[in-house]
């Protein structure tokens, strides 16, 4: 019978692996989106995006809605701050944001084909001031 040789650095490596394994979900949770977005409606004439904000909430959000170039907007709720028709980019500036749910709504003149849009939410992480770009897909 032969005894197995244990490498002297093995316990240390094991400990390091265990530490990383345990700390990874924590760090992911810490950097986890304080903000999330989802489409409630992404086809037809009504485009509706729901933004959910958790605490501690960033004070300000920029919500971006990318539309096919040349799309004509009938109404928007709330009113957008920017619309670059050449790029098909609509922007909202949401200030004094607190934890909760927000909906941005666009009514277009003509219905959209499925898959023609995408969204993005930009904010500063209140914990470290880092800019977060959160893509939102239908």
């Amino acid at each position: 019978m032969t005894a197995k040789k244990i490498h002297p650095g093995a316990p240390g490596l094991l400990f390091l692996a265990l530490f990383l394994l345990l700390s990874l979900p924590i760090s992911l949770r810490a950097g986890e989106a304080l903000v999330s977005g989802q489409y409630l409606s992404a086809v037809g004439q009504d485009i509706k995006m729901q933004i959910t904000v958790a605490g501690p909430a960033p004070g300000t959000l920029i919500v971006i809605q990318n539309l096919p170039i040349g799309t004509v907007i009938d109404t928007a709720s709330p009113a957008f701050n920017q619309y670059d028709a050449g790029k098909g980019e609509v922007k909202w500036l949401l200030t004094h944001v607190s934890p909760g749910r927000y909906i941005v709504n666009l009514r277009l003149l003509s219905p959209l084909a499925p898959g023609g849009i995408s969204g993005e939410i930009r904010y500063k992480n209140p914990a470290n001031g880092r800019l977060i770009n959160l893509p939102v897909r239908p």
Partner: peptide, 14 residues
């Protein structure tokens, strides 16, 4: 730009 605007609001907006 967006980042500059967000920085202004995070620093002074509150």
């Amino acid at each position: 730009d967006d980042e500059e605007l967000l920085s202004v609001y995070e620093t002074y907006g509150g």
